[in-house]
């Protein structure tokens, strides 16, 4: 290092600290700005009709997005059932048989899969479900979201199972419990809260996904009537409405964004409180 006079070093320090604080301020300001804008612009669209009515025809005022909200709930629910079932099982394998070669490979690929472009998953599901069935469908939408959830739940399940002390497993096995019994009654039980947290976070993540639904669930102005037909959903509706020339639709797009943002944030805050409580009760038991 070159020797610099203390004054210069203090100057550089002051500059760097100001820069860092400024960067933090700029970054946080943008993010606060976005959230504030969503609330400010979205709140105007929120009324009773918004939650209970079908969309009004193009150009007409009024109506609501009730069908889209219902569709998003249906699609997300089916995705969650599929994603949780496979994800928890795969995560259990990674957590319980963690040193096998397969576990290493699956772990590595799952980590990549978590950040894989969701729109490509949409294309894949289009090819395997929409084309053979001859129709865009809510089912295809649910499958694409399930595929996005799968690696997320796999990885969080594994991490939660890893936190279960080996001693606990060994005591159960020493008492003569079969392996599945031990996992079911001991490991799952002590990792329960963490696994639930992971699942809620995965649901939060996919409930805001748009890209994979564009060519699977598509969208619809009607109530959902069957899983094998195009199904209205909130995110694709937001996309279509935002791109439309009608001011009323654009306002509704903001309203939809507000709903999605609030739900996703609530799920995230909820899991934080859960984890916090879990941490407290655990340490309470220990001492």
């Amino acid at each position: 290092m070159r020797a610099r006079s203390p004054a210069v070093r203090k100057g550089i320090n002051l500059l760097a600290l100001t820069g860092s604080a400024a960067a933090a301020f700029i970054g946080l300001a943008f993010l606060v700005w976005i959230i504030a804008e969503v609330f400010y612009r979205g709140i105007g669209a929120i009324n009773w009709d918004f939650f209970t009515q079908l969309p009004a025809p193009p150009g007409e005022e009024g109506g609501g997005l009730a069908n889209a909200m219902l569709g998003t709930v249906i699609i997300t629910a089916i995705a969650t059932v599929l994603g949780v079932l496979l994800g928890v099982l795969a995560g259990t394998y990674l957590g319980e048989f963690r040193h096998t070669r397969i576990a290493d490979v699956v772990r590595f690929l799952s980590n990549i899969f978590v950040s894989a472009p969701s729109i490509v998953i949409g294309i894949f599901v289009y090819a395997i479900l929409v084309v053979p069935l001859g129709n865009f469908s809510g089912l295809a939408g649910a499958v694409s979201l399930a595929i996005i959830m799968l690696p997320v739940i796999t990885r969080t399940t594994e991490e939660m199972l890893r936190l279960v002390p080996t001693g606990l497993r060994e005591s159960a096995l020493a008492l003569g419990a079969p392996y599945w019994h031990m996992v079911w009654h001991v490991v799952y039980r002590s990792a329960r809260t963490g696994m639930l947290t992971g699942i809620i976070l995965a649901v939060a993540r996919v409930s805001g996904e748009t890209a994979p639904l564009l060519f699977t669930a598509l969208n619809s102005p009607y109530w959902p009537t069957g899983l094998l037909e195009p199904m209205a959903n909130l995110t694709v509706t937001i996309f279509n409405y935002a791109m439309s020339p009608y001011e009323d639709w654009q306002t509704k797009a903001w309203g939809g964004s507000l709903i999605i943002a609030v739900i996703v944030l609530l799920m995230n805050i909820g899991t934080r409180t859960m984890v916090h409580r879990m941490g407290r009760s655990k340490s309470g038991e220990g001492h």
Partner: peptide, 24 residues
Amino acid sequence: VFGTAIELLAAVPSIIYGMWGLFT
């Protein structure tokens, strides 16, 4: 507090960033 705020913002769906980008 700031740390939690940042982590929550990482969870905001990307379509909301898109909306803000387009209209604001």
